[in-house]
Design a protein around this nucleic acid. Structure first.
Lengths: 224, 224
DNA sequence: ACAAAAGTGTTTGGGATACACCCATGT
DNA sequence: ACATGGGTGTATCCCAAACACTTTTGT
């Protein structure tokens, strides 16, 4: 029995926080279609390759973030027939949250603020839609998982973590109540025992990510 | 440029509540591979077909639930290389919640309790894993969306809705507090103005689904 | 001394839980 | 009359928001 076969890609929504803004890793296209438009880093899946493996390979080859072991989770699959003008291509997308890192050395790959990307129209395929879904997923994941810490360097202060929440959610948070909530949440943060004054003022305790997978209790967004 | 192409299927996790149990629609395989094992209803995607359209077609052709317009949402995509012994097949899965309906007239398609399906090993491909993910998604969706009402007939009582929650979550709920919460949630339920005594006792008001998409405030599971 | 940021204590209000109690039907 | 389930009222508790206040640094 013969069945239709389609080309399958993995496309990545890699987010970070840098210079007080939520940014996504973009690939500037230098060939048709959509030459000169931004796209998400992506690549075709090999026949013998598992989906997460393909995602990790694209992280390496296209995004230039090979060494960095960042959290990658499946976002959604996009496959309406004409999303790629050349042929039927179905895209399995992954969401990753990274600390503020230099991206690839290639000029083609850069961090861009998501609000700029979502406002501009010059995007390839349906990648603006995919980015929007990824950002929304990240926003809600911050509520009930400890993934906000994935945006931070290995050691960070409570205030730095709060800045992540404020930038991703786009809302100011009360520093005092935030402090109590995150330090009280089960296995969210583990103190290193050291402090830093890099943010000015009184020395702040440094923390590392704890082993929690879910957040109890969750950090809920202000009612919006 | 030549790229690898793979076969793509849509597989459905269709859940309902019947006879006090959470059940899933299963397809009994009558050909190899996995002859005699249960599987999820599924089918190959056509070249010119959007993914949700393919899901609706499978609902019709395989599940025999054509007329019924039920809620279908994308669940996840499964694609490790050897999940189908014949060839590389990637499966885009959808989750649907249905009221208690007669399934197809074909004996091959039946409702089976999910606890039985998840306990048994005689399943095709990785469909047990997919079912498990679908059930978990449904459980958490009941918390913050009004989808529990999708398990009910068009008109239903608060107690019938409560039974849905109790069966899907596997926990008893306080009838009084449940009543207050669901009738107080914004646009969850709209009263029809009529009552029924089909459950015995004092007549219960009948409700229809309201227009809410999210639940404010959410119905949280007992801490478990 | 003063500014700046970290961290703690305290009050208060809304929502959830637990449960007593009343209502409206069938038998 | 009584059983059965529908529905309301109420005390209590917990948690989160709001914000005054103390602590510890740099300049």
């Amino acid at each position: 029995m013969s069945v239709p076969r389609v080309a399958l890609t993995v496309d990545l929504v890699i987010l970070t926080v840098r210079e007080q803004r939520l940014c996504a890793l973009t690939w500037m296209r230098d060939s048709e279609p959509y030459r000169g438009c931004w796209s998400l880093p992506g690549g075709f899946i090999q026949l013998d390759e598992d989906l997460p493996v393909a995602a990790a390979r694209v992280m390496d080859e296209k995004a230039g973030l090979a060494d960095v072991r960042i959290h990658l989770e499946q976002l959604a699959t996009f496959g309406y027939p004409d999303r790629d003008p050349r042929q039927r291509v179905v895209s399995v997308t992954y969401l990753g949250l990274a600390p503020n890192l230099p991206a690839s050395s290639r000029a083609q790959v850069t961090w861009k603020p998501v609000d700029v990307l979502l406002a501009r129209e010059e995007n390839a395929f349906d990648h603006r839609r995919i980015l929007r879904d990824g950002v929304e997923r990240a926003r809600s994941k911050l509520e009930y998982t400890p993934l906000a810490a994935a945006f931070c360097p290995p050691e960070f202060t409570v205030a730095e973590l709060r800045r992540v929440y404020e930038i991703v959610w786009g809302t100011p948070l009360d520093p005092r109540n935030f402090h109590r909530k995150v330090t009280g949440a089960d296995r969210f943060l583990v103190p290193t025992g050291t402090t830093t004054t890099r943010d000015g003022g009184r020395p702040a305790r440094l923390f590392r990510r704890g082993g929690a997978v879910q957040l109890h209790p969750p950090m809920l967004r202000p009612s919006a």
